[in-house]
Structures are given as structure tokens and as C-alpha cells.
């Protein structure tokens, strides 16, 4: 080991050299597993994390599955159990 004029750095170099090489394999395989797991979750449950976040405490106005498709019902199509403004009966049955 090359001696420097800082014994702390010498000690650091000594400890660095003692890093077990098999640790890389362990960390790399764990990282690969986590990456694969993340991809599988993403494949079967797209936006899984965001969905959970919204379900727990997200914006209540934002639908969990994104905006609802299709047109909104026109006022004349209101169901008959609701009284429209003016008190006239609805158009239902």
C-alpha cells in the first residue's frame, strides 16, 4: 500500500482493499430481482403505485382509473326519481 501523508486515507485504502468480491454478485442479483419484480408489477398492474397513493389519500375528484369515457347524460335524460328545477316531473317512466 502506498503511504500518504494522511494516515486516515491510508487506513481507508486498507479497508477498501478488504471488500469481499462476492458482495458484488449478491448486490447485483438482488438489484436484478427487484428490477424484474418492478417490471412484472408494472405489466400486470400498470401505475400500481400511483393507484395505491390515490386510493389512500389522493385527489378525490380524480377517478382512480383515469377520466370516465363516454358522454355525460343530458339534463332531459335525468332519471325520473330526481326532481328537475321548477318541480316538473321527469321524463322517465
Amino acid at each position: 500500500m502506498r503511504e500518504s501523508n494522511n494516515s486516515f486515507k491510508d487506513l481507508e485504502a486498507l479497508w477498501e482493499a478488504g471488500l469481499p468480491p462476492e458482495l458484488e454478485t449478491r448486490v447485483a442479483s438482488q438489484a436484478t430481482n427487484l428490477a424484474v419484480f418492478g417490471r412484472v408489477v408494472e405489466l400486470f398492474m400498470p401505475d400500481a403505485l400511483q393507484t395505491v397513493v390515490r386510493m389512500i389519500g389522493g385527489n378525490p375528484d380524480a377517478p382512480v382509473g383515469g377520466p370516465v369515457s363516454g358522454r355525460r347524460p343530458a339534463p332531459e335524460e335525468w332519471p325520473d326519481w330526481r326532481t328537475p328545477p321548477g318541480g316538473k316531473p321527469g321524463l322517465g317512466r
Partner: peptide
């Protein structure tokens, strides 16, 4: 999402972190 990039970071810093 390629873990190889992370492994490269590991090789750069693992010794220092271990120390």
C-alpha cells in the same frame, strides 16, 4: 431499467462505502 448501470455505480463506490 438495466441493472448493469447500477452495478457500474456499485463498482465505483462499494470500496469507499465498505471502508
Amino acid at each position: 431499467q438495466n441493472p448493469e448501470y447500477f452495478t457500474t455505480l456499485y463498482r465505483r463506490y462499494a470500496g469507499k462505502v465498505f471502508a
